[in-house]
Amino acid sequence: MPSPRSHLALVLASPLMLLLAWDGATRFSLVEQILLPAPATIGAALWDVLTRGYAGVSVFVHIGTSLWRVLTAFLLAAFVGVSLGLLRGLYPRIDAVCLVPFELIRPIPPLAFIPLFILWFGIGEVSKVLIIFYYAMLVVMLNTQAGVASCPEDKIRAARSLGASPWQVFWRVVFPASLPHVVVGLRVALAAALSILVASELLGGDRGLGFVISDASTFFKTADVFVGIVLIGLIGLIADRALTFTARRIVHWEGKT
């Protein structure tokens, strides 16, 4: 193991080296600017998009539209996914009913459904939100169910012997015991939701960061493609940090030694 200081130096040096190599490659015309713009060009494009908008629309409208879609779908998915996961974990009959339909859908990549959803629900908000929702919901549901199963049998027996009713066992024991798994499911679902968002926005509409990326690429505005990518990446990073921060307060006992 390197010392903490040299570890930090390596951590910081590697992205700097990449950036320098990238800058050098464009500066000495090793790659064409239309394929890979220089870092400074992307920086300028980012500033331009932030101050003057894209396609006549403020960038904050694009960001807001994307965030609205992803948050609506994610919150719905969290609610439905946790509820279904708990029901499947608690009631074998409900699990038996859900098993085959959900297992049939689960391995299908959500992007394969996009044309179908557009056919059914049009290119408006409904199909975009629904496609994110259904996939994120599956992820949350499966993790919640695993969380319910993770509660040891003896813990349930002990709670019953301490005087807890079946409802109290669920609400005071099984549900809190499942929360660490639920949190993992929410984080995975959030990352998936963002990637599906971009794909669904590529296919129609004139708002959203996915639209910015696909529109810019159509007109060979490669620097603007990178701007869209950077903004999506930042949103993903901030959302995941915020979720982890909140989760650590709720699931405060995890990892405590």
């Binding site: 003896d154 813990k155 027996r157 002990a158 709670a159 012997s161 809190p176 929360l179 006992w253 405590k256």
Partner: peptide
Amino acid sequence: PDRGIVFQHHTLFPW
């Protein structure tokens, strides 16, 4: 609760 039980491995609630 009149008949309390203690198992080999603790069943305390970590939260």
